[in-house]
Amino acid sequence: MIFEGKIWVFGDNIDTDAIVAARYLSTYDPAELAEHLMEDIKPDFSGLVSSGDIIVAGNNFGCGSSREHAPLAIKGAGVSCVIARSFARIFFRNAINIGLPILECSDDLSHLQSGEDRLQVNLDEGLITHLQTGDAYKSAPFPPFMQEIISRGGLVEYVMLRIENEK
């Protein structure tokens, strides 16, 4: 899978309350949740982000609550991929499980410009390329087990296959 898009840069420890606040958790419709994406830390974000864009973040992205509504909101906004220096563990699981592409990249991308810089992401090879400068960044590939979940489109599809095989 290859994505290209403009980027939005966030800092370290972006928590799931920041991604989508608890007051909006009485729905789990991705499109509705997307209207409130990052609202408390970047109030205009849902109007700025567009389909195919890429979120770039620092350490521990998605820390805090287990709400799957956070990756659902990101997916609902049409974000193609999240690149972070590291992810909090429940967010990491949730993203894999719902089929939201994520990449862990130890390079510091915090100098990149929101809404201006554009990246190309090659998910299978873990390769990130800056489309304007040509700079390349590398991320660690997922273990085969997780790659299988991602390639099937998420954990539900993976489990369905197992249920089918056990019949």
């Binding site: 287990s66 709400r67 799957e68 429940i90 699981r93 949730n94 499980n97 719902i98 087990f145 998420g154 954990l155 539900v156 489990v159 197992r162 249920i163």
Partner: peptide, 18 residues
């Protein structure tokens, strides 16, 4: 440990988690 909703769905079906 805490997990997400899809993990819970899979566990309710299979009684397992990764």
């Amino acid at each position: 440990t805490g997990v997400g909703s899809t993990d819970l769905a899979a566990a309710m079906a299979l009684g397992e988690a990764w």
